[in-house]
Amino acid sequence: MKGNVKSAARKFIYRESTVGYVFALPFIIGFLGFTLIPIVSSLYYSFTDYNLIQKESWIGANNYMRLLHDERFWKSLKVTLRYVLLSVPSKLCFALFVAMILTRTTKLTGFYRSLFYVPSLIGGSIAVALVWKELFSRKGLINQILGIVDIKAVSWFGDQKMALIPLILMTVWQFGSSMIIFAAGLKQIPGTYYEAAKIDGANRFRAFLHITLPGLSPVILYNLIMQTISAFMSFTQAFVITQGGPNDATNFYALYVYDNAFEYYDMGYASAMSWVMLAIMSLITLVIFKSSKHWVFSEAGN
């Protein structure tokens, strides 16, 4: 009898679903305990007039209706989309390219990789904001270089069409975390695959196409999703460098959310904006996930 209970308990403990819940437990606790309530509050605030100081009052879907007529909102959405579309692919290609190059075996690889990683260590600090403004200022280094090849100086932060470019370049420049994730992914591809390919007489390009890309595809998917999300959330670059100007040409979505929440004391409106963003991004992530079934190759199979 006792043995039966014991073995039943054992069976329970070692059952796959039990193990699953045990390992997922930290997430479940964290989500229920510390994440869910703030998320629900922000959803609630999005239906209220809330200025952070006085108690909020329910106003139904008013905030969402206001969004429809807010030109600054539409512009920020457009600007952010353009920024995401331009910065994410360039950043990922660059990161992958550098990660590939730096798998070459030389004693200097570690040093080189450090060199390329350093920019990602200074993030959105004031020092970077300063140097970036300096580089792209009217008499800055970039314009001087353009001058050498006889291109007229560009007013980077004064021209509505150009102002996004320094911000995109800054994002691409800080490609370090994507790079090391790619590097780690490359390391995971078994060397035997390449040796086999070599024996089969495949050249380097074919090896890249048929071994590297498929082997790396889960990591590519990961970087694509995370970089898309974080590009949508971009705040620091615009906050420290352009403050959204000129004429809202770099007024990123998250920056406009921040302004509404903390500068304009309109937390209800900011919350509504955030939930619209959640809807948009869910859609985009869903599309990427669905498409990934066709191009992501998993060793673990499914």
Binding site: L130, K133, F157, G158, T242, N247
Partner: peptide, 10 residues
């Protein structure tokens, strides 16, 4: 100063 030049005033 135009908006670009203004933004250069730190």
């Amino acid at each position: 100063p135009d908006p670009g030049a203004i933004s250069e005033i730190k």
